[in-house]
Nucleic acid binder design. Structure first.
Lengths: 182, 182
DNA sequence: TTCTCCATGTAAGTAGTTACATGATTGG
DNA sequence: CCAATCATGTAACTACTTACATGGAGAA
């Protein structure tokens, strides 16, 4: 339960979860998000820093000053209450509809307005985009292997999910376009 | 090119594209969106009606009063300029990054904070959600078949894409969880 | 008569981003 | 010495949703 009427929203739990995974500063969180969940959830600095303050106010994280030389820095760890709050959120059973918002698919949906050549061009752009995404995800793979070695299993799972569904997109597009898969 | 300094944004093109596909009124657009692109792009009434006005002002659609009995109604069709503007947008080559924003995957990413049973529960919730989505998409299939019969090929393609990537999710989750695929 | 659908519209609020401001440190 | 990176933060803006307001028509 969260006290004091401070309602936490998904971005707050993202920050909390990242602190739990070892991100110490706001800057660390930014970087960790960039090479993990940014593929299905983005978060900007303008959210991270206020969120850390909120989380500290309700004692879900504990922050302390940890300057590097003359460069200021605040480090955070998760508290036992923070762990509990994160678990409560993860198991809360709230609806979590799959929400996709993709101009690419919208354009593809309307592509009958184009002549054959342009429609095919659009199809190929969609395929290319998914190929690039697969490549980007594969670049993260070494990091996932390190997680696995440390007994952390779910980040690598989400990585596999990302790769799998972009491959599915490529396959369907290839079949539709009569082109080779690559 | 759009004249008069009215910059059109994706929701406007969605409205334009839907008018082109035969949606006549704002209400028609709402319904058509609901059983087609809502799976990768949502749009609310508060956007549709102002958007139709904007599009009419720059002559990309033409609207006229078409009351049903005493019930008011405005019908729209796309103009030649509207067709051209839609094609220009579809072929514009602007970046169209694949943007996914999914709390479900975020939770799965953090699931190592849970014990085995809860983590498995979350995994199953993700799978269930994709199964439901596949079912919802399959329910639309008859509509897609009618499109196909009329030579409209791309809406059915996006439908297949949706089904394919949710099946991919189900498969990966099933393998990870050691469960049956269903 | 009352519920659901048809139909159009707006006001107010929410969630988020972009752009900026500041300054220290490291590497080429 | 200059660029990139480390590090924190805010003001202003944008996009979008929710909730509401209004009212006609058909069906149970």
């Amino acid at each position: 339960m969260t006290e004091k009427g401070v309602r936490l929203r998904p971005p707050d739990y993202v920050v909390l979860g990242m602190v739990r995974l070892g991100a110490q500063s706001g800057y660390d969180i930014k970087k960790l998000v960039h090479d993990s969940i940014r593929f299905f959830w983005t978060i900007s600095e303008a959210q991270i820093y206020p969120s850390l303050k909120r989380l500290e106010r309700v004692a879900l994280v504990r922050g302390r000053s940890a300057p590097q030389g003359r460069r200021r820095r605040r480090n955070f760890d998760i508290t036992p209450q923070g762990e509990a709050a994160l678990r409560a959120w993860l198991t809360s059973g709230e609806a979590m509809p799959f929400e996709l918002r993709d101009i690419g698919l919208v354009k593809l949906f309307f592509a009958d307005a184009l002549d054959r050549a342009d429609a095919l061009g659009l199809l190929q752009a969609i395929m290319e985009r998914s190929r690039e995404r697969v490549a980007a995800l594969n670049r993260i793979e070494p990091k996932a292997r390190r997680y696995k070695a440390a007994g952390i299993r779910h980040p690598p799972l989400t990585l596999r999910l990302g790769i799998a569904f972009h491959k599915a997109i490529i396959d369907v597009c290839a079949e539709f376009g009569g082109a080779k898969k690559r």
